[in-house]
């Protein structure tokens, strides 16, 4: 019962953050509400017994990735977004589309919920077992991931560095 109450509270916070992300017009407000969503999702993971995933969610998502987002927003001095004709069409089509798809998904899942319930703590996901899985069953994907990260770092550096003409003019001037 306690778990259901906790699930409902943090699920409500989660959905409120997601809706706030859509409503806010300033990117920094959207970024902060996305951090709220990720934090409450970490609690949902803890309720499911996934300790490792919850910790990684807070460290990588709410920590590293969102710091990157906030940093870029401040670097580019992003202001309020302007409305164009395309955005009005998107508003007209997008919001009904979201409502229809959410209601449809919820109805299908609740109507055919012969799926049983998730007992809390039935499947603990301690870092030890996850680490064992990562270095035995998933060793190849894990190693490929490190190559992916390396390529991403190099790509980010190449893309974000100023073009050569700017660098040369700085050297000369």
């Amino acid at each position: 019962m306690l778990h259901l109450v906790l699930f409902l509270i943090f699920g409500a916070i989660c959905v409120a953050g997601a809706v706030n992300l859509l409503v806010q017009r300033h990117p920094i407000n959207s970024a902060l509400s996305l951090i709220v969503v990720m934090g409450s999702l970490a609690v949902e993971y803890l309720l499911l017994g996934a300790e490792f995933v919850a910790a990684v969610q807070v460290i990588i998502y709410a920590g590293a990735i969102m710091v990157l987002f906030v940093f870029v927003i401040m670097l580019l001095n992003a202001g309020k977004e302007e409305l164009t004709s395309g955005s009005r069409i998107a508003l007209l089509l997008g919001i009904p589309g979201m409502l229809v798809s959410s209601v449809l998904v919820a109805w299908v899942l609740l109507a055919h919920s012969g799926t049983g319930a998730v007992p809390v703590g039935a499947l603990p996901g301690p870092p030890k077992i996850i680490g064992w899985l990562l270095f035995h069953d998933f060793l190849l994907p894990f190693e490929v991931t490190s190559v992916l990260i390396l390529i991403a770092i190099m790509g980010a550096v190449v893309l974000a560095s100023p073009p050569e003409s700017v660098q040369q003019s700085k050297k000369e001037g």
Binding site: H3, L4, F7, G11, C14, V15, E44, L47, L48, V105, A106, L109, L110, S113, T115, G116, A117, V118, P119, V120
Partner: peptide
């Protein structure tokens, strides 16, 4: 016990 479908709906 939280039903699986609640998580999927969220």
């Amino acid at each position: 016990m939280v039903p699986l479908s609640y998580y999927l709906v969220l």
